Simulated scan of single mutants.
Amino acid sequence: MDVDGDGAPTAGARRTPSALRRAEERGETLDQLLDRNLAELLQELRVAFTGVQVLFAFLLGLAFTQRFADLDEFALTVYTVTLLATALATVLLIAPVSYHRLVFRRRLKASLIVVADRMLVTGLALLVLAISSGVLLVLDVALGRGPGVVGGALVLLVAGVTWYALPVWARRTPPAGDPGPPGGEDRAAG
């Protein structure tokens, strides 16, 4: 393993000449590649974490409102799923900070980037679940079960397409005029 299709290092990035080659193709040293990948990852975490913070705060406060006692079994189940998905997304989106702190100055930046990337992708998947089930809950209470299910499903579908299907499609489709990765490597293999 070396770097993925986006140039992000994988588990063995420090040891493989391929990672160094990819860095050099961009005019970077391996350390510069790792630093750039870490900076990009941190920026993505900042964006994702803002959304999960707002949703989590709303959900924590919701249980203490008067109308909460009026929720039926379905709404309580949806609330529970939403709360747990949001809590787990929060944990996964904060986890790279703890990981970084515990491996700081141990020359494990490549490992940090790989692990943090996986945590971010998983945290985003949980955030999609949390957002769509949160919409389901609010619309169920405000408009009824039917509109709630339609709204929640619509959010889930749009998020699934824009957050996952579209990027996966883009990884597999080389840009116009791009002959593909050097050496005929499969772009999606990273």
Rank of each mutant, 00 (worst) to 15 (best):
M1H: 08
D4E: 10
A8E: 10
T10W: 08
A11F: 03
A11Q: 12
A13T: 00
A19Q: 09
L20D: 05
R21E: 13
R21K: 15
R22G: 06
A23G: 09
E24K: 10
E24C: 09
E25G: 07
E25Q: 12
E25M: 13
R26K: 10
R26D: 11
G27Y: 03
E28N: 14
L33F: 08
E40A: 10
R46M: 13
V47N: 12
A48C: 04
F49I: 07
G51F: 06
V54H: 14
F58M: 11
L59E: 01
G61D: 12
G61H: 13
A63V: 13
A63R: 12
Q66N: 12
R67K: 13
D72R: 03
V78D: 01
Y79G: 00
Y79M: 06
Y79S: 01
Y79E: 06
V81H: 00
T82Q: 06
L84C: 07
A85K: 04
A87F: 08
L88F: 03
T90D: 02
I94D: 10
V97A: 11
S98T: 09
Y99D: 05
R106V: 00
K109Y: 00
I113R: 00
V114K: 01
V115I: 01
A116V: 00
D117I: 02
R118M: 05
T122N: 03
G123L: 03
L124C: 14
L126H: 03
L129T: 07
A130H: 02
S133H: 14
S133W: 08
G134S: 09
V135H: 05
V135G: 02
L136K: 02
L137E: 00
L137A: 01
L139Y: 01
D140S: 05
D140F: 00
R145A: 01
V150Y: 04
G151E: 02
A153N: 11
A153M: 10
A159T: 02
W163G: 08
W163P: 03
A165K: 08
V168K: 13
W169S: 06
A170K: 14
A170V: 12
A176W: 08
A176L: 10
G177W: 07
G177C: 09
D178S: 07
P181F: 05
P181H: 09
G184M: 12
R187P: 04
A189V: 04
A189F: 04
